[in-house]
Every structure is written in C-alpha cells, then in structure tokens.
C-alpha cells in the first residue's frame, strides 16, 4: 500500500463511464483525503450520480479505476464495503418494515456487534424515537430522510457517501442534520462525499468542492477560494457561472498543485 492510498479515502484515476452513445463520466481523476467533507456539484446530467455509483461499486467503470481505502471497487469491493455507507433519494428502505426492523436488518448485514445499543444511539442522535416502531413507508418525507441517514450511519462508516441528503427536509431539520454530520466527521475522522444542489449546504459543510459538467471536472477548490476566484458573493453564483459556461479564472498555483 503506497503513501497516497494511506492518506486518501478515494482515488479516481481516468475514471470514465459510457452508456452506448452517451458519455456520462469522461476520464476524471481526483483524490479525496481522509477526514474531509467534499462536495460534488454539477447540473442535472453532469455525471455526479454515475461517479458516486462507481465509487461505491454499483456501477462498473468503462475505463480507469477508483480505489476506496486502497481497494479497487470494480474488483475488490468486498474488502472495504463494510466501511462504507450510502444514502440517496433514488433508494428506499423496505416500506413495510418498521424503522427498528430496517435498522436491525442492516445492522446484521454490516456486522454491528450490539445492534440494540446502536439503534438507541442513532435514535437519540437523529431523533427517531417517535417513529422507531412505525413502518418506514408511512413516514413523512423528512422522517424518511432521517431514517435513511440512520441506515447510512448504522455501521459507523469511515466513508459516507450522500446523494442529496437534505432533500425534503425543512430548514430547521436540515440545519440540525448538517450539525450532526459535522460532529460525526470530527468525532470519527470520517470522510464524507456529498452530492447536492443546495449551495448553502455545500458552502457550510464542505472543505472542498469538485464541480462537474458534462462528465468532466471543470473546477476543484475550497468553497471560499472558488468564490474569491470567480469574484462572486456565494457558491450559487459560482455554480451559475460554471453551468452557463461563463469565463472561468485559472486555477491558483496552490490548487493546481
């Protein structure tokens, strides 16, 4: 295992995905350091979900490779799957199982030692107590999002991959969840990769932002540096500049290195 692998949670090298005539991800390379929160930004069809799919082993790359904690996800994913978890609005939990039953099943799948204690902790952290014994399909959208996050945290993952995690949450709950994610990262030195369209959320949570457009990485920097380089007030304005193809300032020497 080389030095880069030890310090990085994710390493993508020439990662590409082609669906017949469509290029979803076009040979991107990046590394994400352990213990950081990275935002993956881009408009619809930019390739974010496909990139995430390849990182967690759900999508096979057409070319290139992605390594998570040193394991090639196309060939050796089972070595590290127990250290990863994932939440996405495209994925649900079994509707007819209660929240507790769902967490029990996933706790067993991930080899959690004391599942009852883990559920109690998650219930306290994410305020699930009120609906722990209610069927997952009968919850409100916001409650479902919290339960999905609880499932994503059931194994205390070293890498947490979140696709639109705050969708459907009211501002108060979203803010509360953001605080929880920050504490989780700090407490466990976990790595979080976050795809989102909520620029405020990304600006607050992320140490770094990777911006994608038409399958390529078009910029990559800390949120405050991106805002400064583009001469904008906030990340949303930067996003619009990128999405609409306005002139982009050159990467700083520090970022390029």
């Amino acid at each position: 295992m080389d030095v880069a692998t030890k310090s990085n949670a994710i390493e993508a090298d020439g990662l590409a995905k082609r669906y017949s005539d469509t290029v979803a991800v076009d040979g991107i390379s990046f590394a994400i350091a352990r213990g950081t929160i990275t935002g993956l930004l881009g408009g619809n069809g930019a390739g974010k979900t496909t990139t995430i799919g390849m990182i967690i082993g759900l999508v096979a790359p057409s070319a290139g490779s992605v390594r998570v904690f040193g394991a090639d996800m196309a060939r050796d994913s089972y070595r590290v799957l127990g250290r990863i978890n994932f939440e996405s609005p495209y994925v649900d939990l079994p509707h007819r199982l209660t929240v507790r039953q769902n967490l029990t099943v996933f706790g067993m799948l991930y080899g959690v030692a004391d599942i009852a204690a883990r559920i109690a902790k998650l219930s306290a952290d994410l305020d699930l107590g009120e609906f722990l014994d209610r069927q997952a399909g009968k919850l409100s959208a916001g409650q479902k999002t919290r339960v999905a996050l609880a499932k994503a945290l059931v194994n205390e993952p070293d890498l947490l991959v979140l696709d639109e995690p705050m969708a459907s949450l009211d501002p108060d709950t979203a803010d509360w969840i953001r605080g929880h994610l920050e504490r989780y990262r700090a407490g466990k030195n976990a790595t979080i990769l976050l795809a989102s369209h909520n620029m405020f959320e990304v600006e607050r949570l992320c140490d770094r932002v990777i911006m994608m457009k038409r399958g390529k990485i078009v910029d990559d920097d800390a949120p405050e540096r991106l805002i400064a380089r583009y001469g904008r007030q906030n990340l949303e304005e930067v996003f619009l500049d990128v999405a609409r193809g306005r002139a982009r300032p050159a990467l700083s020497a520090e970022t390029a290195s």
Partner: peptide
C-alpha cells in the same frame, strides 16, 4: 422482487452481503 419494488436493492448491493 420485493427488493425491486421497495427500491432497496442498491442498499443491499453496497452492503457486505455477498
């Protein structure tokens, strides 16, 4: 099919379940 209907299959496929 229950996994397909409930859109739970991706959760299983990224878990350590072989």
């Amino acid at each position: 099919m229950e996994e397909m209907w409930s859109r739970n299959l991706p959760n299983l496929m990224i878990s350590p379940l072989r």
